[in-house]
Simulated scan of single mutants.
Amino acid sequence: MSSFTLRALALWLLLCGSAAATALSDQLTAFFQTRFAHSDTAITVVVRTPAAQWPVCNAPQFSLPGNGRPWGNLSVQARCGDARRFIQVQVQATGQYLAVSRSVRRGDSLGAGDVQTVSGRLDTLPTRLILNPSRALAAVALRDLTPGQPLTESMVRQPWRVKAGQSVQVIAQGDGFSAIAAGKALNNATIAQPVRVRLASGQVVSGRADADGNILITL
């Protein structure tokens, strides 16, 4: 075989490998973009797994084990019929998130002027970012916050909807059954958090706080 033929063959193999890498990356990018269909987050997927371990079909079915991080270094299951392989990828996500705009003391409630929306690489920032401004407004700082910090769920809590010692209504509902009783909350809780309530009879029941401060029990 001539040297020219060998060079041509090597170039052809290189182009084929490059095309396959592009196709798999595009397929994975499309898969991850469906998870952000209702946002302006831009997704790029870099395949880390060597080509020899890629799926053997042209259109593998992708899935993510568990409900972990939406971006960063992830393992994706690729299924071709009964055969499955795990592809290591880096999901690069660029989009908007909330950052602290001025100093906030621990225990203070956040207002509109305390946070700002900025853009950046989400996968390089701390986990559990707050992306929706409604999650931050009226939230209570759990630590001192400084300007420029990306705001995460671990930095704030939602305001108490029920406080310990507060008089509350307990609403119990079941199949064809509904009852209301009065009592006192035994612990603080935000919306949807568990609350223990002591009824007038002395009995202690457990339910979850709703947006109106009632305690809901499903029977």
Rank of each mutant, 00 (worst) to 15 (best):
G183W: 11
A37P: 01
C16I: 06
R128K: 09
S101L: 05
Q203P: 09
A37K: 03
V45L: 00
T44Q: 13
T146C: 06
I217S: 11
V100W: 06
R106M: 11
L28Y: 01
S134R: 11
A21N: 03
S206T: 15
E153M: 13
I191W: 06
S63D: 08
G176P: 03
I217V: 13
A211I: 10
A164I: 07
L15M: 05
V47A: 01
P50Q: 02
T117L: 15
N67I: 06
A83R: 14
S2T: 13
A181N: 08
V115I: 15
Q203G: 09
S119E: 09
A51K: 08
V76S: 02
V46K: 06
R161E: 06
G176E: 03
T22M: 12
A52S: 11
Q169S: 13
L6K: 10
I180H: 10
S167Y: 13
A181S: 14
F36D: 04
F62C: 01
G207A: 11
N58L: 11
M155E: 04
E153I: 14
R106A: 12
G174M: 03
A59T: 11
T124W: 05
T44D: 12
A51R: 12
K163W: 11
T190M: 08
T41W: 01
Q193H: 04
A181M: 12
G207F: 10
L142Q: 12
V45S: 00
L219G: 08
A172S: 15
L24H: 00
V140Y: 04
L24W: 00
A181Y: 03
Q158W: 06
P147A: 08
V45T: 01
D40T: 11
I171T: 12
L216H: 10
V115G: 00
A112H: 15
Y97F: 15
A172M: 12
L122M: 07
L13W: 10
G213L: 09
A30G: 05
V45H: 00
V118F: 00
F32H: 09
Q116P: 06
G202C: 11
V76W: 01
D108H: 06
F31Y: 13
T29W: 00
V104H: 06
G174N: 03
Q193M: 09
T49G: 05
R48T: 10
K184C: 10
A200R: 15
A8Q: 14
N73W: 07
L74F: 05
V45P: 00
V100R: 07
S75D: 13
S201I: 07
L137G: 03
V140H: 04
R135N: 15
R7G: 13
S201G: 04
L151Y: 01
G66V: 02
S201A: 10
S154Q: 15
R102W: 04
A8D: 10
L131S: 04
L28R: 01
Q88R: 12
Q169R: 15
P70Q: 02
P147F: 05
A182D: 14
D212M: 13
N188K: 04
G148K: 04
G72N: 00
L28M: 04
N67L: 09
N132G: 03
A78Q: 01
D114K: 01
H38Y: 08
I217M: 14
G111Q: 10
A164C: 08
L186P: 05
C16W: 11
T127S: 11
T94V: 14
A192E: 12
